[in-house]
Structures are given as C-alpha cells and as structure tokens.
Design a binder for these strands. Structure first.
Length: 205
DNA sequence: CGGCCGATCAGCT
DNA sequence: GCTGATCGGCCGA
C-alpha cells in the first residue's frame, strides 16, 4: 500500500504540503524501449499561484507556456527555461488554481547507466540529478510530457510513502533563482533533506 | 573555492 | 530588446 503508486487524491492540497510530501518518494520514468529510470526526490520548491511574485502564474498570467499550471492536481507541468533546459513540476490545488511544486533534485536509484549517457558532462554520480534542469536531462523529461497525468501515465509517475521520511531532517530555505521576486524571494518555500548528497545547493553555515 | 559569462527561446515592454 | 524557477566552462585567488 505505502509502496504503491500515487493516486489522483494524493496530489490534491496546497503546494507547501505537497512539496514536503514528495520528499522521500520516487519519481519513475518508463522509456518507450521499456527501460526504467528513477530517483528519490530530495529537494522541492512550492509555488503558490497568482499572489506569488516568483511564480509563472503571478497576477493571473496565463500563456501557452504556463497553461498546464491551471490543470488538475497530479498533472505534470514541464516548461523550457533559459531557452535550453526543462523543469518538471507537479500541479496541485484546485482546478484553475495555478499552484505547483518544482522538483529540484533526485538521488538516483535505477537506470544510472542511462542517466550517465544522457548527462555525459556529469563526472560524479551526485551531479546526475542535482538540479531541476539536470534531472530532466537524466530522466529524459521534456515538453512532450507537459500535461501528462501522473496518476495514470505509463511514462512518468510517483511512488512511495508520502514524506518527509521519519529518519530525515527537513530543511526549509528561500527558493533558488528568484531574487527578482521582492519579499517573495525570502520566503522559506524550498524544502530539502539535509543528509542528502544530491541536493542542488546547501545553505552555507 | 567563487564569480563571471554565454547558450538560446518564450513572454513581456 | 531584455529577462528568466539553469548549467557548465573558464578564470583568478
């Protein structure tokens, strides 16, 4: 039961709750050739919708690119950033409420050889999925998966018990790369597992 | 180690 | 024409 694949209901709720619940679960990618690539989610960020200056849907913005943010909870929102990388989000909240969770880092589990092929520039295993653009490269996630229903898809889904894991330490910190967002840049909406070697950036102590 | 910079495109002014 | 929910190469300390 707890090891099973996530159903539609499990994705519902606010972005901060989902951001924490996704920590410690597995993101699974099935390729067309039948091979499976997966990793444990160790870092997420919550994007709170129309009032959140850092979010794509701030002020009710609705474009071709961010249209999927307005879809039902459990939909994958994959968008192109800086003209060259993809970012993977899980939509949550009510339909027409553009809230989502950005998945920022994974600890690789299955298909590590495939990940290395897709990310030949990464020398160390901990660089394979330690960033939102990196994990999309490693798991072959591109915009063909934008709008995918994670509760029914054979290509991309979530499994495992909702987190954060009991034996882990949860860190809350400001989000990455949103310095333009004024007061919203400082809010602690980034979550990661302190003991993981696979997070994109750690707080300096 | 840290800082700068280019790649490359969707959306906004 | 500028900027961004990024990354990796190159530089100097």
């Amino acid at each position: 039961m707890s090891r099973g694949r996530w159903t539609k209901e499990q994705f519902q709720g606010d972005a901060q709750s989902l951001a924490k619940a996704l920590l410690g679960t597995q993101l699974v990618r099935m390729l067309d050739d039948g091979s499976q690539i997966s990793g444990t989610i160790v870092e997420t960020e919550a994007y709170l919708g129309v009032m959140d200056r850092a979010a794509h849907a701030f002020g009710g913005r609705r474009t071709q690119r961010n249209e999927t943010m307005y879809a039902a909870a459990g939909t994958a929102y994959v968008y192109l950033i800086y003209g060259m990388y993809n970012c993977f989000n899980v939509v949550c909240g009510e339909p027409d409420e553009p809230t989502a969770v950005l998945v920022r880092a994974l600890a690789p589990i299955e298909g590590i050889q495939r990940m290395r092929e897709a990310r030949s520039k990464a020398k160390r295993e901990r660089d394979l999925c330690s960033g939102p653009g990196k994990l999309c490269q490693a798991l072959f996630i591109d915009r063909s998966l934008d709008g995918e229903d994670l509760a029914s898809s054979d290509r991309l889904f979530i499994k495992g018990e909702p987190g954060p894991p009991k034996d882990s330490t949860l860190i809350c910190a400001p989000r990455i790369g949103v310095d333009y967002a004024g007061a919203w840049a400082d809010k602690p909406l980034r979550y990661y597992l302190e003991e993981s070697e696979h997070v994109s950036k750690k707080l300096r102590s």
